[in-house]
Design a protein around this nucleic acid. Structure first.
Lengths: 235, 235
DNA sequence: GGCGGGGAATTTGTCCAACAATCCCATAAA
DNA sequence: TTTATGGGATTGTTGGACAAATTCCCCGCC
């Protein structure tokens, strides 16, 4: 049976407990179908109150990791039934994971560009163009330009008319931005002014003209360029 | 200020509360930067104990929806900082959402097929072929064949050597399977025996030969075929 | 011996009360 | 004006209690 170590207060207790259980799951110490110890037992093992354990359990349940029923206990659900897709920020410390995430985002953005070229409305085009203008108009390389950049990509996502596609792109982008910022990978001013805006405009022109293949190619170029500027080695 | 209605016991209380807050977020009643009422106040308004409210709050926090700090309260974080990508099963009741999800899964599988054609190892090929054989060998159209089908797609995902890509494909597939099963959309036996196995084998052959474009085309054909057989109208 | 019923034990769900830790802000002091 | 400082507000954690649902065993009955 899986062991449960005493917890060291290094943050909210429920988070630590949930993380510990997830770790035991990954390591195979706990497996699909296994029953968790009772809440009271866990509380005793971990040296915390039952309420704290309950919050951790509740979180795992809401993620679809476990299934709890009154009187029966908590059992681990099949991995395929997880209710959420979650990217662990800590895992992005490794360059391999960062590359993988970058690749995934790139694939989706390229697909999105192709679809947007076919479905975009005039409103979408206006939003994208406004974002490009904001990038070009900003006097300095600052947070405003980064925001305009994000706004361009979000507008393009919305132009696909596929809520899931645009949502997942937003999600991946935000995770990526967070880590690139954390690891000190930043654009220089010249990069953005001279190159990035041009790349965005090429994507925009292709989407506007309705040429899906050109839009995909332009976006692929943009992604490759962004990766190169950030020093992320794409395969 | 947002109102909080009394809750009617129709399931675990914390789930209902979290759902209510998420609904207020979607409707715009609560917006980025807004502060939630205090836990005690919420407990009073909802007619439940503070403990229950805490579990709901904890769930929202772990999803990155809100940010809580001791002594300060809970505020709603920017939408871009959500920590999870979650597909609400209830939302898939609408055909539009189902189509969107199907399209997204298709895009990713097609990309994955192309990448797998370039990176697959002999082990990957063996796993994929074993899955196809299991499909062909099964005497009846039953759960075993569906499992073999899923195993083929999972093997293909793993052949991309991109953990995020294969994970998200798995996740989307499981959500999709759950809803197609729930809505009574099922394959008939002839479909699977005569057509589906052939589609899978075409994908496999292309991946084995290392032809990325052929693999993409074969997977696109498979996705279109699957959608047609399920009655999902792809754009 | 097998079978069904009933009750006890187990376990999660909910509630309540209290204290600790932290933050915010107003007030007072330099 | 700026800096302490104190108190109120709010989340974090604890402990205990009871309700509701499930499981399991034991007992009586056939």
């Amino acid at each position: 049976m899986a062991r449960f170590r005493q917890i060291d207060r290094g943050g909210p207790l429920p988070d630590l407990i949930a993380a510990q259980i997830m770790a035991q799951l990954r390591s195979g110490e706990l497996r699909e179908g296994d029953a968790l110890p009772t809440e009271t037992a866990l509380a005793g093992m971990l040296g915390v109150s039952r309420n704290v354990v309950r919050e951790a359990i509740a979180r795992l349940r809401s993620d679809g990791v476990i299934d709890t029923r009154q009187g029966r206990g908590a059992v681990i659900r099949p991995l395929s039934e997880r209710a959420t897709f979650r990217i662990d920020t800590a895992a992005l410390g490794s360059i391999e994971n960062l590359v993988d995430l970058f690749e995934l985002r790139g694939l989706l953005e390229i697909d999105a560009a192709g679809i947007a070229a076919r479905r975009r409305s005039d409103t979408d085009l206006a939003a994208m163009e406004a974002a490009i203008d904001a990038m070009a108009g900003a006097s300095e390389f600052d947070e405003l330009q980064l925001e305009a950049d994000a706004r361009f990509h979000r507008s393009l996502g919305q132009a696909t008319r596929n809520g899931y596609l645009s949502t997942i792109i937003d999600y991946l982008s935000s995770r990526l931005k967070e880590t690139t910022r954390a690891t000190g990978r930043v654009y220089t001013r010249d990069d953005l002014i001279d190159v990035t805006i041009g790349e965005h405009r090429r994507v925009f022109d292709a989407v506007k003209s309705g040429d899906a293949e050109a839009a995909r190619a332009a976006m692929a170029g943009h992604i490759r360029g962004a990766a190169a500027r950030l020093g992320v080695p794409l395969p």
